[in-house]
Design a protein around this nucleic acid. Structure first.
Length: 311
DNA sequence: AGACCAACCTGCTGGC
DNA sequence: TGCCAGCAGGTTGGTC
C-alpha cells in the first residue's frame, strides 16, 4: 500500500490504541505473514507474550513498536516490526468480531480490550520481532517528524538500518540526497523509489512529487541541478504532508486506518491515476506510461520527456 | 558497486 | 458464462 502518509496514519492509530498495553497472546494464522521472522511463528508469538508495547515509531514505510518486559524498566532491545506491503492493514477492534477473510496475525491483550489484527490479502506485508540496533542517523536530533516525542530514535529495528531517512524527518539530509542522486546513473523516478536513497516514497507520491517539480520520470539523475532536486524534495514533502492531513490516499478498502476508515487524498491527486484527464496547471491530458511494469502518470507539457531518458 | 528484472501473492476488471 | 490478460499503492534476491 501504503506509502509514508498511509503508514503514518496507521502509526498514529496504534499510538492511541496499543501504547502501554501488555500482550496476552499472539496467534499466527498464516506463516507467510511472519516469514521474515527467522525463528518461526511459534518464536514470534512467544516473544510477544508478556511484553508491553511502547510508543510506535516509523521510518519511511516501516513502523515498529518497541517491546518492554512487563517487569522491567530497561530500555527495550526488541520491537514488533511491521511492513504493510501492498495490501496490509493493522486493525483495532472488538475481540469478539468476526475474523476477516485475510486475517494473518491476531494479538490479544491482558486487559481483555480491543485486539490488534494484521489483515493482508496479498501477503506482501509482514510482521516480525527483531533486535533494535544503533541508528545511522542518531547523531542528528531535534526532528519534527510527527512520529513521537521530538527526538530521533537512538535505535532502529535491524531491517530498517539499511534504508534512508524519510523526507519528513529532520534526520533527512538534503545535501547527501543530492550528492547520491548525482552519483547515480538512472532515472529520477527509479531513484525516488529506492528506499536506500530516500524512504517513504512509493509510486503515487513519486508521480505527485515529479508533477509538482515539473520533471519527467525518466530524467537522468546525474543531470539534475541542485534547484531541481530541491523542487522534487519539496514536492514530496508538501504532497505527503497534505495527504497525511486528510488521512492518506484510499482508492479502495485496502488503505485504511486502524479503525478501517479511508483517507480523502485521492481527490487531491494531480497526476496519479488521472490518465486522459486535464492537467490542473495547463489542461493537457495526463499521459500514462508503463515503466518497471507499473504505471507512471505525468503531464506531457509540464513534464516533457528529456532527450536523454533513463529508465 | 550499481542497475535492472523477475518473483513473491490474491483479487478485480475488461475484452473476447 | 468462462477464460485470460492486465493491473494494483512494495520489497527482495538474483543476474549482469
Amino acid at each position: 500500500m501504503p506509502e509514508l502518509p498511509e503508514v503514518e496514519v496507521v502509526r498514529r492509530g496504534l499510538e492511541r490504541w496499543t501504547t502501554g498495553r501488555t500482550v496476552a497472546s499472539a496467534e499466527v494464522l498464516h506463516p507467510r505473514a511472519v516469514r521474515r521472522h527467522a525463528a518461526g511463528p511459534a518464536d514470534f508469538a512467544g516473544r510477544l507474550a508478556g511484553r508491553t508495547m511502547l510508543t510506535p515509531r516509523r521510518r519511511g514505510k516501516y513502523m515498529w513498536l518497541p517491546l518492554q518486559d512487563a517487569s522491567s524498566r530497561e530500555e527495550p532491545g526488541e520491537a514488533l516490526l511491521a511492513h504493510l506491503g501492498m495490501s496490509g492493514q493493522l486493525l483495532i477492534g472488538d475481540p469478539e468480531r468476526a475474523r476477516e477473510k485475510h486475517l494473518r496475525v491476531r494479538v490479544e491483550f491482558t486487559d481483555g480490550g480491543r485486539d490488534l489484527r494484521f489483515v493482508d490479502q496479498r501477503t506482501f506485508g509482514h510482521l516480525m520481532v527483531c533486535d533494535l540496533v544503533p541508528d545511522a542517523f542518531k547523531e542528528r536530533d531535534g526532528n519534527s517528524d510527527g512520529t513521537g516525542d521530538g527526538t530521533v530514535p537512538a535505535l532502529v529495528p535491524e531491517p530498517v538500518a539499511h534504508i534512508a531517512a524519510d523526507p519528513l524527518e529532520d534526520a533527512f539530509d538534503p545535501e547527501a540526497f543530492y550528492r547520491a542522486l548525482r552519483r547515480r546513473r538512472t532515472g529520477i523516478k527509479r531513484a525516488l523509489l529506492d528506499q536506500s536513497l530516500i524512504s517513504g516514497v512509493g509510486n503515487i507520491y513519486a508521480d505527485e512529487a515529479l508533477w509538482r517539480a515539473r520533471l519527467h520520470w525518466a530524467r537522468p539523475t546525474e543531470t539534475l541541478t541542485r534547484a531541481e532536486a530541491a523542487r522534487v524534495l519539496e514536492g514530496a514533502r508538501e504532497v505527503m504532508g497534505a495527504a497525511l492531513a486528510v488521512g492518506g490516499t484510499s482508492f479502495d478498502s485496502h488503505y485504511v486506518d486502524v479503525n478501517g476508515d479511508s483517507g480523502y487524498f485521492e481527490r487531491s491527486l494531480d497526476a496519479y491515476g488521472r490518465r486522459d484527464e486535464p492537467c490542473r496547471r495547463c489542461g493537457t491530458p495526463i499521459r500514462r506510461d508503463v515503466f518497471m511494469n507499473r504505471s507512471s502518470y505525468s503531464c506531457p507539457t509540464c513534464q516533457p520527456r528529456p532527450r536523454r531518458a533513463r529508465y
